[in-house]
Structure formats: C-alpha cells, structure tokens
C-alpha cells in the first residue's frame, strides 16, 4: 500500500459514506489523484511521492491551477481532510498572513510559544507587533510553531530560494518533530 492508499484507507475508516475515485498515474512515480465526495461535499487529493499531499476543496477550480494547500505527510493531510469533510469546509489558497494570525491558526497561545522559545510572553507580543524583525528570530518562531522558514525571491526570469546559513541559538528549544 502506498501513502495515498494509506491516507484514503484512514479516511474511509473515519467516513464510511465517503465516495472515493482514484486517478492513478501511468508511472507509479508520477502524480496520483483521488476525488472524494462526502454527501455532496467534494475534495481533491494530489499525491507527489517525493513532495507530499496537495488538498483542494474550493469552488474556484480553473484549468491549470495547483492544489490550494500542501501537507508533507499522511498524518497532516488526513487531519486537514477530516476537518474539511466533517465541517464541509473549503480550502484556501496561500495568502499573506501576519505572525500573530499564523500563531492562532496553529492553535498556540503567546504563553506556549514563549515557553518553546524560552522567552517571556511580552517578547512574543512585541515580536508580533514589530514592523521589522531579524530573519533568525522569525525562523526560530516558525520552527517553534512546527514549520520551516523558506525565503524566496521572485524575479521576472524566475523564483530563487535563498540559502540560509545555519545559526546556533542555545536559547532556542527544538520544536516537536512533525514527521514526514
């Protein structure tokens, strides 16, 4: 069983009425698709074996668009799909988000984040209201929220991902592993 089959089996266990239509690739290493429907509420899953899962459940689906949301593993994708199907929710394409809102989306209080970063809660409040912060500080914050900071520069001729030098911050507590 591959990872998308594992994901679908998990969802079928949670939703016995779930309709699933697989659209496998010609080459098993290619892109796998699954169309889900729970009592008329649709969702689409895209699995790229080397990258993870794309999830979409929006009314806006124009030819040529990528998936609205991406998740690195079965666990995170299944959690999101459970919420979408159970709550008949829609996915959202990526938008600019403020640090404070991101913390709330990740269901973390300022106190919890402060503890992970080994700082006082007031420092988190200042960080979230500061117009300009060090990249190392933002990176530590994103990692404490369970993510990874990626810096990309867009130019007319393409998009470049910036290398980030390793930094050592003995004050920073390692965020719990999300697993991939």
């Amino acid at each position: 069983m591959n990872l998308i089959e594992e994901l679908l089996e998990k969802l079928r266990g949670q939703f016995p009425d779930l309709l699933v239509m697989m659209d496998p690739p010609l080459n098993a290493a290619g892109v796998w698709w699954a169309d889900l429907d729970l009592n008329g509420h649709p969702a689409t899953v895209e699995w790229r074996p080397s990258l993870g899962f794309g999830v979409s459940s929006s009314d806006d689906s124009v030819f040529g668009q990528g998936s609205d949301e991406v998740y690195p593993d079965v666990e995170s994708a299944s959690r999101r799909l459970y919420a979408l199907l159970m709550g008949r929710e829609r996915t959202q394409p990526p938008t600019e988000i403020a640090l404070a809102k991101l913390r709330k989306v990740k269901s973390m209080s300022q106190e919890d984040l402060a503890e992970r970063l080994q700082v006082k809660q007031a420092a988190i409040s200042r960080l979230e209201n500061r117009p300009d912060s060090r990249i190392s500080t933002i990176r530590a914050t994103i990692e404490a929220l369970g993510g990874e900071l990626e810096l990309r520069a867009r130019f007319p001729d393409g998009v470049y991902t910036l290398e980030q030098p390793e930094t050592q911050n003995p004050r920073r507590k390692t965020a719990p592993s999300q697993g991939k």
Partner: peptide, 13 residues
C-alpha cells in the same frame, strides 16, 4: 513568474 516546481497554487495557470 513561471515556476513549475511550485505545485501549490500561486495564481498562475
């Protein structure tokens, strides 16, 4: 810009 490695929706088709 064209970035096919960006498989998440980025506004481009």
């Amino acid at each position: 810009p064209f970035d096919p490695s960006q498989w998440q929706v980025d506004g481009r088709l």
